[in-house]
């Protein structure tokens, strides 16, 4: 016990701040979700679970969930597949590989606001690089209003999210690949394995834990994306890119319905916990060792 008394000073400042500015607000969030507070007036009514039924019926809320899922699925597929393919080329510790890994990592260190501006410009229908390039190579029919078309805007932003984070995922895959013993790869080659056999029979089973980390990190990261969507479209056009986090933000700070926004936050927390749980079940890989 004496030992813990001596350690107490190390715990107290951090735990106190964490309880006051993280745990306490999270709990009061649940409380607000049961009220009709507008965020400004000093008084509010306790409305029970009204917000929960109203938000669940709200068409825009439902649309945000669908958009969130679209965004998440698109980002997870693109980000995982592209970073894996690139990491496979970059796993050897050669100078050119190290340089390429650094180059691919650069977007990760830029702010989402900068990335959002960069790509709003690239996607600009008349002045942007993307349509300009398509026209230059004779694919004028492929040009789009990338952020203005309600059918594709959410996927245009998903592509940017992947662009910004592939470099980070490459680092994870490369670490996984470098942990694979060289002898295994060599002996499989001596046994005459083709490159594809080598990948599917030897490398992939050993890389599965790294892949599980990439997929689960990407899922959560893309599910809670906010800055990029907020910067590029703010949820528009016609709510086609509204996701849960912009829905919460807009309900609270544009429409001043704090109670409703808090309810959406609780739903958001439940959804993200559910996804984490599903993933935990699905990706619980038995580590392979030879």
């Amino acid at each position: 016990m004496k030992k813990y008394a001596k350690l107490l000073p190390f715990f107290v400042p951090g735990i106190a701040l964490y309880l006051a500015l993280f745990i306490y607000p999270t709990v009061t969030g649940f409380y607000y979700s049961l009220t009709d507070w507008d965020g400004l007036s000093p008084s509010y009514q306790f409305v029970g679970i009204d917000n929960y039924t109203n938000v669940a019926k709200d068409i825009i809320f439902r649309k945000s969930i669908v958009n969130n899922v679209k965004f998440m699925v698109a980002v997870v597929i693109v980000q995982t597949v592209v970073s894996l393919l690139l990491a496979l080329q970059l796993s050897k510790q050669k100078k050119v590989n190290v340089a390429l890994r650094s180059l691919y990592f650069v977007p990760t260190i830029l702010s989402s606001v900068s990335v959002g501006f960069i790509w709003t410009f690239v996607y600009d229908p008349s002045l942007g690089l993307l349509n300009g390039l398509l026209e230059a190579v004779g694919l004028s029919s492929w040009t789009q209003n990338w952020l203005g078309d309600t059918g594709i805007a959410i996927f245009s932003i998903a592509a940017v999210q992947a662009w910004a984070h592939i470099g980070q995922m490459i680092i994870l895959f490369v670490a996984g690949l470098q942990a694979i013993p060289e002898e295994l790869v060599e002996s499989a080659k001596l046994d005459g394995a083709t490159r594809l056999q080598l990948f599917f029979r030897v490398i992939w089973p050993l890389l599965a834990p790294a892949a599980a980390i990439v997929v689960s990190y990407t899922t959560i990261q893309s599910f809670k994306a906010f800055d990029l969507v907020f910067t590029m479209t703010g949820g528009g056009p016609a709510y086609s890119t509204e996701i849960l986090s912009t829905y919460i933000y807009n309900s609270a700070f544009m429409n001043y319905t704090f109670g409703k926004a808090s309810t959406a936050s609780v739903y958001f927390l439940l959804l993200i916990s559910f996804i984490t749980f599903l993933q935990f079940r699905a990706l619980r890989t038995d580590r392979v060792s030879y």
Partner: peptide
């Protein structure tokens, strides 16, 4: 102590931004 903080890993900022703002 680790568990206390691990709980927070599950809660994204969007969830507690409103109460943090008001507090």
């Amino acid at each position: 102590v680790f568990g206390l903080f691990a709980v927070g890993l599950m809660v994204p900022s969007q969830v507690n931004m409103i109460p943090i703002y008001t507090f």
